[in-house]
């Protein structure tokens, strides 16, 4: 940074910043638009008059959302799912990453195991077999259907595994000499010094669970059990006017209520936005450290 930049570098920097700013603006505009919609009068919204600033400012959509029991129920399901799901994810990742980070001498066929896990990242059984599996083990329409199928997140596992491999072998050896078993080594040596990585994968898991909607739609057969994003998907998704039942006038009137939808999206996004600042400081170092030995 202290070196003088050449002309070419300066030009590059200008373009670089311009491009990055543009990208950032492109990412932000839809968010701002949704927020503007959520604070606007419904007539202005259906007239397409709202762009980036609320027209005829109102709190009404939020008042409506706060009164909506279905919304809060879905919110509750998502909270449970995120808590339980993340706990399961992180625990399993740590327990798996530890043995798999050992050298080939300590754990024979280690590469084979890693490949088996890696394989599931590329290929899976497909929707119907997975669905039948969920049905046959009897967790359909329960919280477990949202938690168990994705219990081991292989991407996070590889991240964690690489992080563990950076831990100096001497540390482990000295722990062993002091009489610690694998169990103790893992919890008292590896886990405490891996906080950045653990924070990172926790963030990944929480966000993943918070945003997942497809599994909710498929495995929850009663729409009253939907997690938040599945619930939002059903109200935001574009309806085909040709196939919908026309006498359903009430629902049509609601469909027009885009300001309410926008308010629900904002309310649903707030908690996860609040999590970010607390975990983000670990975020970059977590990913970077894990990838050095990739």
């Amino acid at each position: 940074m202290l070196l003088r930049q050449t002309r070419g570098q300066k030009i590059f920097s200008v373009f670089n910043y311009a491009l990055l700013t543009l990208t950032a603006v492109l990412c932000l505009l839809p968010l701002i638009h949704v927020i503007a919609l959520s604070f606007s009068d419904n007539a202005a919204v259906s007239g397409g008059l709202v762009t980036l600033w609320p027209v005829r400012f109102t709190w009404e959509p939020y008042a409506y959302v706060l009164e909506r029991s279905a919304f809060w129920k879905a919110f509750g399901v998502t909270l449970q799912r995120a808590a339980l799901g993340t706990a399961v994810n992180v625990l399993l990742v740590i327990l798996l990453a530890y043995p798999l980070s050992m050298s080939g001498e300590k754990l024979r066929a280690r590469t084979l195991y890693v490949w088996i896990f890696f394989f599931t990242m590329l290929f899976n059984g497909g929707l119907i077999p997975t669905y039948i599996l969920i049905k046959e083990i009897g967790i359909m329409d329960t919280l477990w259907a949202l938690v168990l199928p994705g219990a081991v997140t292989v991407f996070n596992l590889i991240l964690m595994l690489n992080f563990f491999r950076q831990v100096p072998e001497e540390l482990e050896d000295s722990a062993m000499i002091d009489g610690a078993g694998h169990w103790r080594t893992l919890w008292q040596i590896y886990v405490p010094i891996s906080t950045p990585a653990i924070a990172t994968i926790t963030l990944f898991c929480v966000v993943g669970h918070w945003n997942a909607w497809f599994d909710g739609l498929i495995y929850m057969r009663d729409a009253a059990h939907y997690p938040l994003q599945s619930y939002l998907q059903t109200i935001v998704v574009k309806f085909d006017f040709q196939t919908m039942s026309a006498t359903d006038a009430q629902r049509l009137a609601q469909l027009n209520d885009r300001s309410v939808k926008a308010a629900q999206m904002v309310v649903a996004a707030v908690p996860i936005l609040l999590v970010y600042p607390f975990l983000q400081k670990y975020f970059v170092s977590g990913i970077k450290l894990g990838s050095v030995k990739g």
């Binding site: 669905y131 498929i218 929850m220 057969r221 009253a224 998907q233 309806f239 196939t243």
Partner: peptide, 20 residues
């Protein structure tokens, strides 16, 4: 009610139930 959700989600769930 074993399966209750509005279309188009219902249509997807229905196809899954049919297939399985």
């Amino acid at each position: 009610y074993k399966m209750v959700t509005a279309s188009p989600t219902y249509d997807q769930q229905f196809k899954l139930a049919m297939a399985s």
